[in-house]
Write a protein that binds this DNA or RNA. Structure first.
Lengths: 195, 195
DNA sequence: CGCGACGTTGATTTGCCTCAACGATTGTGG
DNA sequence: CCACAATCGTTGAGGCAAATCAACGTCGCG
């Protein structure tokens, strides 16, 4: 049965931080809905409420917003073993400013806001797991701010490229340019220099 | 006794997210060390391990790094009712890349990494409190990335200024410029236009 | 008082954007 | 299986936002 594999992937990730018994793993499965996601499908659209926190079992997602001038700005990517959500909207259940879109066919596990609290009531140590997950995401985003301000566009591209060479091949260049904070034309010119 | 007030400030903040009994509050006080902090004092210096997570009872702090060119880059401010730490170093107990420095005389409560786990063992619902705190910090930092990329330097300054007018008066201009990602000269020129 | 930290102002330079035109590739319907 | 349109990447010319560099004014403080 397929969803067993998906649950295993999540349980494996959780076990990197806390230890989950197999009884707890069974319990967990009652609260997480796994589903296939097609390429270009949306988990969240701007204006909607972010109803769930999504664990990416397999696939690649982008969270993006629209600037005043109407262009798309990628705020965050989410790939295998990442959680992705607009936590502002998720927590307050107010409309989101962001879109979350699939860039490949994949699989996600959805933890619905509605049932999150009762899941935590049943398995309290998951609070610790999510604390770790959020702590790491927060720290990583602060590091990103550091690099945005301390490096030139070209340096950011080269460093990102050598840090995540396989990921770079998964996404179109114009999305990488958006994530790194410059235009696709500029990225093209960097690559033309030397690669 | 002074430290009672400090503990009250922390307990009040915690009670905005979860409810803490007075017995738990007493217990908490055994794990948090409050202390006065002088202007320009460091809670963390680059190269050191971040030994504690700090709750700012009163005061203003900056977390900053050094760019390759040796200039200081402010990554984050922390004021009253914020937690501040380099969570990467705090969690791994490896040397930090960041400095955390006081910008006013103030008071912080330190939750030492050494005792954090036993505190959570005694008061498990604090895991939830910190999950909320980190979730909000993470969401706020992603919003910051959105603004960095979607607005010009001048727009960022004007929006920040009208969102946090009192905070702007607390810090020197060159630090605000660093936080917003441009030079002090540029900030000076914006202000000269119209204010 | 004199020094150092902070802010201002102007001249010049530059990193990156904008706009426009043009390949290359992919997918889709006839 | 081809025609055609999208979509994506490339290239070049010109322009602008913000950096750099340097000089100077001002204030607070030892």
């Amino acid at each position: 049965m397929k969803s067993t594999e998906d649950l295993d992937a999540l349980a494996t990730h959780i076990n990197r931080f806390i230890s989950l018994s197999s009884a707890e793993k069974d319990l967990l499965s009652e609260y997480i809905q796994f589903s296939d996601v097609k390429n270009k499908e949306y988990l969240l659209k701007a204006g909607q409420v972010c109803k769930a926190n999504y664990f990416v079992v397999k696939g690649c997602f982008r969270m993006y917003s629209h600037t005043d001038k109407g262009t798309e700005q990628i705020i965050q990517f989410g790939i295998d073993n990442w959680w992705i959500a607009d936590y502002t909207s998720f927590e307050s259940q107010q409309p989101s400013l962001f879109n979350i879109q699939s860039l490949e066919s994949g699989v996600v596990g959805a933890l619905d806001r509605q049932v999150q609290d009762s899941l935590f009531a049943r398995i309290p140590k998951l609070e610790r797991y999510f604390r770790y997950v959020l702590q790491r995401a927060y720290a990583a985003t602060l590091m990103r701010v550091h690099f945005i301000f301390s490096e030139s566009g070209e340096e950011r591209y080269r460093n990102f490229n050598s840090s995540f060479p396989k990921f770079v091949q998964r996404i179109p260049q114009y999305m990488l340019a958006s994530y790194l904070g410059f235009t696709p034309e500029f990225l093209s010119k960097i690559r033309a220099k030397k690669d």
